[in-house]
């Protein structure tokens, strides 16, 4: 076989690999949505779950998913962005900066179940919060933190240095320059990062089993953050492996489809405004 022929075969194999990856994703989506969409109905999405009889919905779980996500972002955004700004703007080359960098890296590698146990230990036991929405949100915030630090730092570093210099040359303080120049210019990157984090946080389950709990409040919607609050992805696992309801399979399939749709929306639709913003800010690159 000549090297030309080998080259041609290799090219074909690599093309095959690329097509296989896309086909695999397509098959996944079709399979999940195909099984799950018929289960979805307005009643399923809004009604309360059942303990032992069929026909329960996932309303409270869906609500809790977004409520916990919202609270966790509320907690992790200021700290994450603050640390990101520190690393991009203030950090000098010293031991403290190294320590922060290693911490961010280490934090992003922690398995989610370890976060879950930490949250269980600290929030549920030592703080005495039991299984609560707040405990879940606090623990989930830890998962979001390293991503937010990283995207903020990257976003700000990508802003041309001339912006910063021009702002300071006009007599602004550093904080004014950060608030009015750097952060707005870095916003598209930061928003994309927040979107990706949110998608991940919505799908997260190992963290929340032993911090937010496995059942839901009797009221719906219940904004009390100290109440127990199972999320949709935890519910999907729970009905599939522990629950007694006869239609567990249908509920799991429906929940999976719902979860996938939410993630798709976060990945595709919410990426669009930040892309438009970016085009406008950079003059279409």
């Amino acid at each position: 076989m000549t090297s030309k022929q080998i080259d041609r075969i290799a090219t074909a194999v690599l093309w095959l690999a690329g097509i296989l990856i896309i086909a695999l994703l397509g098959w996944f989506l079709i399979r999940i949505l195909g099984d799950g969409l018929p289960q979805l109905s307005w009643k399923f999405i809004t009604s309360k779950p059942q303990e032992i009889s069929a026909g329960g919905g996932v309303g409270p779980q869906l609500f809790n998913s977004f409520y916990i996500l919202f609270l966790s972002l509320l907690l992790s955004l200021p700290i994450g962005m603050g640390a990101g700004i520190y690393l991009a703007v203030y950090a000098k080359k010293n031991g403290f900066t190294d320590l922060i960098r290693i911490s961010v890296e280490a934090l992003s590698s922690v398995p989610s179940i370890v976060f879950g146990l930490f949250g269980y230990l600290l929030f549920a036991n030592l703080f005495g919060w039991k299984f609560s929405i707040l405990g879940g949100a606090c623990t989930l915030a830890l998962l979001n933190l390293p991503v937010l630090v990283r995207v903020t730092e990257e976003g700000i570093r990508a802003v041309p240095a001339s912006y910063w210099e021009a702002s300071l040359a006009l007599g602004s303080t550093k904080w004014q320059a950060i608030r009015k120049v750097l952060v707005p210019a870095a916003l598209p990157t930061i928003i994309t990062g927040i979107t990706l984090t949110s998608g991940r946080a919505l799908g997260e389950s190992a963290i929340l089993i032993y911090t937010a709990g496995l059942s839901v409040s009797r009221m719906f919607p219940d904004f009390n953050p100290m109440k127990i609050g199972e999320t949709l992805s935890v519910h999907l696992w729970y009905v599939q492996s522990e629950a007694l309801v006869p239609d567990a399979k249908q509920i799991a399939q429906g929940s999976a489809a719902l979860l996938l749709i939410v993630v798709l929306v976060f990945n595709l639709l919410i990426g669009i405004p930040s892309r438009i913003l970016q085009k406008r800010l950079t003059g279409g690159k």
Binding site: I32, G203, S205, L259, L260, V263, N267
Partner: peptide, 16 residues
Amino acid sequence: ATDLFVGIPSVVYGLI
């Protein structure tokens, strides 16, 4: 497509 693979929740992979 690659990003979406990462975005799919692990419980959904588990269900598959």
